[in-house]
């Protein structure tokens, strides 16, 4: 459903993505790993058009993201995103954070949107905080609300951009638990993360990126047992033995 063909991305003179060729299929959980600055987040942000690709072809459900007829809001309705820093709306309650887009974008009526939102809040174990404001929540709680906000649009796919990197260690487990639950239910997910435990447990595939290139794209088992690339081997040994 998502296909990168020879995608290049420049930020000014900086070559952020180099000849990216990747496919993400429906129902798949793909974890993207790699050192900081390797282009993982940039690649992810291209998928929902937060970053514009410089050349190549990027197809989202067979729609060319660069074509003039493609309307980004239509694409984004079907692809949820969870950010490293949550980006909850501080002036809205937890419940309003979740219902805003379904009401205004999907034109759901308010009662139905609230009912749905409560269902998703229950799923991420945050229903008791529905009337709180984001500033009253811990990082882990905010991230779970952000996940519920993404789910409320009933997206075909969820993108996670380092969802646990800004969290205190004791909060990470709760967020990963929710993400694992979603993965088991068959949600299509692309997850940029440093959580190797999560990757080995739930990912169908692992993509390893370094300095703007995809160096490895393998089944999870294969990747962890026999990484093909020397660079991936080094990265793994550093991250696992630290």
């Amino acid at each position: 459903m998502i296909e990168f063909k020879h995608v290049e991305k420049y930020f000014g003179a900086f070559h952020a993505l180099k000849d990216i060729n990747l496919t993400f299929n429906k129902g798949e959980v793909v974890v993207v790993i790699g050192p900081s600055g390797s282009g993982k987040s940039t690649m992810l942000r291209c998928i929902n058009g937060l970053e514009e690709i410089s050349s190549g072809i990027l197809l989202i459900n067979d729609l060319d993201i660069r074509s003039k007829e493609t309307r980004l809001p239509e694409i984004r309705k079907n692809i949820g995103m969870v950010f490293q820093h949550f980006n909850l709306y501080p002036h809205k309650t937890v419940l309003e954070n979740i219902t805003l887009a379904p009401i205004k974008v999907l034109k759901k009526d308010e009662a139905a949107a609230i009912k749905e939102a409560e269902k998703f809040l229950n799923k991420v174990d945050m229903l008791d905080k529905k009337d709180s404001y984001p500033s009253q929540l811990s990082g882990g709680q905010k991230q779970r609300v952000a996940i519920a906000r993404g789910l409320a649009m009933n997206p075909q796919m969820l993108l996670f951009d380092e969802p646990t990197s800004a969290l205190d260690p004791e909060m990470i487990g709760d967020v990963l638990k929710v993400m694992k639950k979603l993965a088991k239910e068959g949600m299509s997910m692309i997850v940029v993360t440093h959580e190797m435990g999560f990757a080995s447990e739930v990912a169908d595939r692992v993509v390893f990126m370094d300095s703007g290139q995809v160096l490895e794209d393998s089944e999870t088992q294969t990747f962890f047992d026999h990484p093909k690339e020397e660079r991936a081997r080094q990265f793994l040994s550093k991250i696992i033995n630290h």
């Binding site: 058009g49 980004l72 239509e74 984004r76 309705k77 980006n87 909850l88 906000r149």
Partner: peptide, 22 residues
């Protein structure tokens, strides 16, 4: 913060809707 605009856009809002609501 720029993340607010990104969050709005990612939810399917247009940039003017994001401006008004968020």
């Amino acid at each position: 913060p720029a993340g607010q605009m990104e969050a709005g856009l990612s939810s399917g809002f247009t940039s003017s809707q994001t401006m008004v609501y968020i």
